[in-house]
Design a binder for these strands. Structure first.
Lengths: 147, 147
DNA sequence: TTTATTAGTTTACAGTTGTAGTCAGTCAAA
DNA sequence: TTTGACTGACTACAACTGTAAACTAATAAA
């Protein structure tokens, strides 16, 4: 299993990955038909994306003869965490909290999800600082942050 | 103020936006120097990015004579929310909760942030469903989701 | 075994991004 | 008024993306 942090998946590729993760093990035909129905893509488009994913080591090819099977080489949860972390990493640290709030408000979450988040937050509250500093510019520059 | 949802900001452009948001109102010279110190970019790189941001309507140019001033035309919090929402929009809905958990765990949050999130979650719990369905493939396809 | 079909590989091509050089217009100094 | 410095505009160029056609190799049907 390749580390999700070492793989950059583009938007379209991401759609292919979702299908692969969901179907778990696919032939190209299955995947092509799936993407055709799900997104209206031509055969070629799916083929290209699949090959790019293989080249990026996000997907592996299995089998010794022709209708090969394809499988994800990176985990879905890991990839999601990597993508999300990466996004937050280049946004203002001071506003991460409110942004997470925005995300939570825009998502559907299950009772279990909520309970889990509450537990994590309760734990985090024990050592949380009073405030978080803006990290948009290196220390010293931009004296008074307007963030 | 332009709607953040209508503007797509690339990674490098994002760095420039952060500087502009923080400094609030800048001349190109200020911005160029800032990016040079903060990221080691050449003058040209910052200039190009600034112009692309103007073309995208993420930044506006002010003043009638030469050292113009530049200012963000999209809000920082709005842009962050738009970027984050956009990311979650193309990831499996079923795993959004765990991904948010991953993000929370990787961030530094203030006491206030945490309290706010707790309030939102408590509210959300009132109407939260028992489970959230995977939405990786259109209904009907991929019968048994492995997500 | 020849042919048709399918699966896999290469090539294509315009738009975006990261990164930066060069040219031109304008204000300030001489 | 000419010149220099600086700001802003335009050009450059390779890598990556989204989208797909064309070609080739392998298998299944005739």
């Amino acid at each position: 299993m390749i580390d999700a942090k070492d793989v950059t998946i583009s938007d379209s590729e991401w759609e292919v990955m979702r299908a692969i993760w969901t179907l778990n093990k696919v032939t190209s035909r299955q995947l092509i038909d799936t993407m055709n129905q799900a997104r209206g893509w031509s055969d070629s488009t799916t083929k290209t994306l699949l090959h790019r994913l293989i080249k990026k080591h996000a997907v592996t090819q299995h089998g010794d003869q022709r209708p090969y099977e394809y499988q994800a080489a990176v985990g879905e949860q890991d990839s999601m965490a990597a993508a999300a972390t990466d996004l937050f990493d280049h946004m203002c640290a001071m506003r991460a909290g409110s942004t997470i709030a925005d995300v939570i408000q825009s998502r559907e979450l299950s009772q279990d999800d909520i309970a889990n988040l509450q537990k994590i937050l309760a734990e985090k509250a024990k050592t949380a600082p009073k405030t978080v500093q803006c990290n948009c510019l290196p220390a010293g520059m931009g004296a008074d942050c307007n963030c």
